[in-house]
Design a protein around this nucleic acid. Structure first.
Length: 656
DNA sequence: AGGTCAGACGCCCTCTGCTGGCTACCC
DNA sequence: AGGGTAGCCAGCAGAGGGCGTCTGACCT
């Protein structure tokens, strides 16, 4: 799929801001429009162009936006659709259109035609550049066309041979060859208009097209070809073709009287008109390549001394217009005025009619208005994203290209946006990082946006009740629920019926109750001895029936005496006489050494509760608990007392 | 003809906020 | 061990500010 950019050519764009959006009218118009067909002519130089607009409009409405504007000619309302097709290729050459003689092109003003078809091409595609020989780009016009200066917007479309192909992939590629600058074809258009003016009979609809080619993004070898069509919907009785209403196109070299009787001068290249000959002559210089004023530093040429002077100032750093309120200086007075508006006077002449926004520049207001209208003229060619300005599209494209132009100067991590990198540096490589305190709880969060998430998740009122899983309390705020449930955490809610014992977990109460009932459900398969807990049975089995079981022995660092439990060893060690120390490798005197290889891991896990109980007996925290080795074999070790151990286990469980 | 002003376009920047993946922690 | 949760973090988009530059209009 080709990249398609919906944009507005610069010369028309300035007028777009005057458009008044009327989407309801546009919808109606779209339904009314007919079918567009373009057929190749029977012989070279002739091409029938016959357009009704159903297919074309459908395509336009996909990504474009129709606009209704009220032009200076008060009798008309013009419906315009904006869309641009982006060509990227090396297979097409841009040709001169001076061949376009009106007498040979009745009905067709500008044609883009594949080479070899017999038609004189404006843009032609070399063999193999397109899949379809019928693919072409056409522009047509009909009688009573408007003068160029009256065209107030553009729209773009590519036709592929016939109407049926219009809705297809309209992207193909144009090579810029050696033309790296802006290529404007308005001259051809005007010639087309002249043809139309002189020749068509009674068309059903006014149609005008602009064709303009400009450089692609960042000067790459590509062009953006913009073709424009103008629909005119007559609102009043006076037809759009009324000469009194619409000023006709004039010859490039002539001038004629406009509606009010003023003489106007029209440029034969771009359609520019002026009532003053001086302005007209001055304008004509813009189309001339004559640039007699050359910079002596870089040899760049300019049309006027003023432009040259401003340019030279960029070399020399000369900025004659200095701001009186700050240290800024500028090359032109206009820059200074604008700067002062931004920084000092805060004068914002461009005010939004839909909100309080005001801006220094009109372009900013135009951009702002898109946030109201939702207009997104800049379409990504690789996905469905469209942006409201060119910069956002460019920034978005990085998500496809993988480009990460911003690098952290500390850790060299790369980022797609400067703001992301800035946040990274602040959070990772800076001191005194600001924190955000939740106003409703003690939580401190590193980022404001995450605090917002925290507030949303934990402190937002929710209509649906959230129930405590321990009691019947209900809450509408998650944070309150969590805090409430924590109050259940240390409750010993399970009370023994037979004594004062209570605990936090039901399973503990079950085990405890067996001390009253005498129940011992865990029987040893080897000796039939019964136990109240599975862990105790496991300990028993390993100690008395497992020949592979090798217990760990904890050795006193002072005298070398061995113990099966670390806590017992520590108690002994505290009383052991100084000077009997054998090992001083541990600063805390708790180095443990096994006399036999370690107990298999599984066996140790099975006895976890007994280990914890043993640790609790010695006052050791669970995290520091050393493994309890059941089968003591050395002097001074203790036998396992089931009843005592059971109580210890239960107590420890509750403590945990 | 030259200077100035203003409109317009383009580019880059910052600030802001949302989102989803990751991970540590808790149960 | 596994699921749920919440903070951390990068990615990404919206909105707007600021400035460089070009061009046409207007004035002298």
């Amino acid at each position: 799929m080709a990249e398609t950019e919906i944009s507005v050519p610069s010369e028309q764009f300035t007028k777009i801001k005057e458009l008044e959006l009327m989407p309801e009218v546009l919808e109606e118009k779209a339904e009314e429009d007919g079918v567009c067909t373009v057929m190749e002519g029977p012989r070279p130089g002739e091409l029938e162009a016959q357009c009704t607009y159903e297919a074309l409009q459908a395509k336009m409405l996909e990504g474009g936006q129709e606009l209704v504007l009220v032009p200076t000619e008060e009798s008309q309302k013009q419906i315009l659709t904006l869309q641009t097709v982006h060509f990227v290729s090396e297979d097409v050459e841009l040709q001169d259109i001076s061949w376009l003689a009106p007498e040979h092109q009745e009905g067709v003003q500008v044609v883009v035609q594949q080479a070899g078809s017999g038609l004189q091409p404006l843009l032609w595609l070399e063999e193999g550049s397109l899949q379809s020989l019928h693919q072409c780009l056409a522009v047509s016009g009909q009688e009573e066309v408007y003068a160029l200066q009256e065209m107030q917007a553009v729209q773009v479309h590519v036709l592929e041979g016939n109407a049926a192909a219009v809705g297809g992939d309209s992207e193909f590629v144009v090579s810029l060859a050696e033309n790296t600058g802006l290529i404007k074809l308005e001259k051809g258009l005007e010639e087309a208009q002249l043809v139309a003016e002189g020749g068509f009979s009674g068309g059903t609809e006014e149609q005008l097209f602009l064709l303009e080619a400009g450089p692609g993004n960042e000067g790459r070898e590509e062009i953006i070809l913009t073709m424009s069509r103008l629909n005119v919907e007559e609102q009043e009785d006076k037809p759009a073709s009324d000469p009194a209403c619409v000023e006709k196109a004039t010859s490039p070299k002539d001038h004629k009287k406009a509606k009010g009787g003023e003489r106007t001068f029209q440029c034969d290249v771009c359609g520019f008109t002026s009532s003053r000959i001086s302005s007209f002559n001055r304008h004509k210089k813009t189309h001339s390549n004559e640039k007699p004023h050359t910079c002596h530093l870089c040899l760049k040429a300019f049309r006027s001394v003023t432009l040259l002077r401003n340019h030279v100032n960029t070399h020399t750093g000369t900025k004659p217009y200095k701001c009186g309120d700050c240290d800024m200086a500028f090359v032109t007075s206009g820059e200074l005025v604008r700067h002062r508006r931004y920084k000092h006077t805060h004068e914002k002449p461009f005010k939004c009619s839909m909100c309080k926004y005001a801006s220094v520049e009109a372009s900013k207001l135009t951009r702002h208005i898109r946030s109201h209208t939702g207009e997104r003229p800049f379409q990504c060619g690789l996905c469905s994203y469209a942006s409201k300005d060119t910069y956002k599209l460019k920034r978005h494209v990085r998500t496809h290209s993988g480009e990460k132009p911003y690098e952290c100067h500390v850790c060299h991590a790369r980022f797609t946006q400067s703001g992301t990198m800035k946040t990274h540096v602040l959070q990772k490589h800076s001191e005194n990082v600001p924190k955000y305190q939740c106003p409703h709880c003690a939580t401190i969060i590193a980022r404001k946006s995450d605090l917002r998430v925290h507030l949303r998740n934990l402190h937002t009122y929710k209509a649906t009740e959230m129930k405590c899983r321990h009691c019947s309390a209900v809450f509408h705020e998650r944070y309150a629920l969590i805090q409430h449930q924590k109050t259940h955490k240390n409750e010993k809610r399970f009370q023994c019926k037979h004594c004062s014992y209570s605990c936090k977990q039901e399973r503990h109460l079950t085990v405890h109750t067996r001390t009253h009932t005498g129940e011992k459900p865990f029987a040893c398969l080897s000796c039939n001895k019964c136990f109240r807990q599975k862990q105790l049975l496991n300990v028993h089995f390993k100690k008395h029936h497992d020949t592979d079981f090798i217990p760990t022995v904890y050795e006193c660092p002072k005298c070398g005496r061995g113990f099966s439990r670390w806590t017992n060893m520590r108690k002994h060690s505290e009383k052991c006489e100084p000077g009997q120390e054998k090992s001083a490798t541990s600063g805390e005197g708790r180095r443990m050494r096994r006399r036999k290889p370690a107990v298999p891991k599984e066996a140790g896990k099975e006895d976890a509760a007994a280990e914890e109980a043993s640790a609790a007996q010695g006052g050791q925290s669970p995290g520091e608990a050393a493994p309890v080795e059941p089968g003591e074999t050395t002097a001074g070790t203790e036998d396992l007392d089931e009843d005592v151990t059971c109580e210890m286990i239960l107590d420890m469980m509750d403590k945990l």
